[in-house]
């Protein structure tokens, strides 16, 4: 990584750095003992990078994922997302950041079972306060982007696993977020479908989307251009792969 900024507390990240964590820690008070899930993680991710976060269970990768996804706030340290310091924002502001800046893709898809594909994709736009008409158009466009233009009125149980994950990806993309944040996106898919979904990710990355993916599968991580490995709450390795 050639253009890594030497970040100190009080600095602001360079404009191209979309994610910057500085000495990020997260501790859980479990009553009898203090669990230190992250013990000072500093990473920088540039715009349009494709990064995989790996590590054994208990390494802190889920905690880091939650912090990057603004679902959780750090105990100490700084987190900058797209030029904004989000580590000390309040609940409602975090919700706004999640809505505008982050597109989540989950292992279990997390689609609303009773709503059709289009409505599922519309959800983030509802919370963005967009009009019904605008939502419809944007959601339809997002579904077309993932190749599901002809499945918009299907309910999740009428779709295959791969199609469901595509709906979830469309939902993640619909607000044009700064980062696509995927948590074990292929964990519930067979290998053929996994390859297909990885193809979608690669295509999105090629179109300029920043992708951060948490996985424990080596061959899935191999799709990313850069792999960050965590161990015991610290960054163990951070390597770019040959493209």
């Amino acid at each position: 990584m050639s253009n890594v900024q030497l970040f100190r507390t009080g600095d602001t990240p360079l404009p191209d750095v979309i994610i910057l964590t500085h000495k990020l820690t997260r501790e859980y008070d479990m009553g009898s003992e203090l669990v230190r899930a992250l013990r000072g993680v500093s990473v920088q991710i540039q715009r349009n990078e494709y990064v995989a976060v790996m590590g054994p269970s208990g390494s802190g990768k889920s905690t880091l994922m939650n912090l990057i996804g603004c679902l959780d706030t750090p105990t100490s340290g700084e987190y900058w997302l797209n030029g904004q310091k989000v580590s000390d924002l309040a609940d409602d502001e975090l919700a706004r950041i999640r809505n505008k800046e982050i597109g989540f893709v989950f292992q279990t898809f997390n689609l609303l079972p009773r709503a059709d594909a289009l409505h599922n994709v519309e959800l983030p736009l509802i919370y963005a306060g967009m009009s019904a008409r605008g939502r419809r158009e944007r959601a339809a466009h997002a579904l077309q982007r993932v190749g599901l233009g002809d499945r918009m009125d299907h309910k999740p149980n009428e779709l295959s696993g791969g199609q469901r994950q595509r709906v979830a990806i469309a939902r993640a993309l619909v607000n044009e977020p700064s980062i696509l944040l995927a948590d074990e996106p292929t964990g519930n898919l067979d290998s053929t479908t996994s390859t297909e979904i990885m193809g979608v990710f690669a295509e999105l990355h090629r179109q300029g989307q920043t992708v951060v993916m948490v996985t424990h599968e080596q061959d899935i991580a191999a799709n990313a251009a850069r792999v960050i490995t965590l161990r015991d709450g610290l960054v163990a390795t951070d390597q770019a792969r040959a493209a």
């Binding site: 996804g69 409602d92 809505n99």
Partner: peptide, 16 residues
């Protein structure tokens, strides 16, 4: 509960 979690992750505020 899951749906609520999902909605929150998609940007729903408490008041939503």
């Amino acid at each position: 509960t899951r749906e609520i979690g999902l909605r929150k992750s998609l940007g729903a505020r408490r008041r939503d």
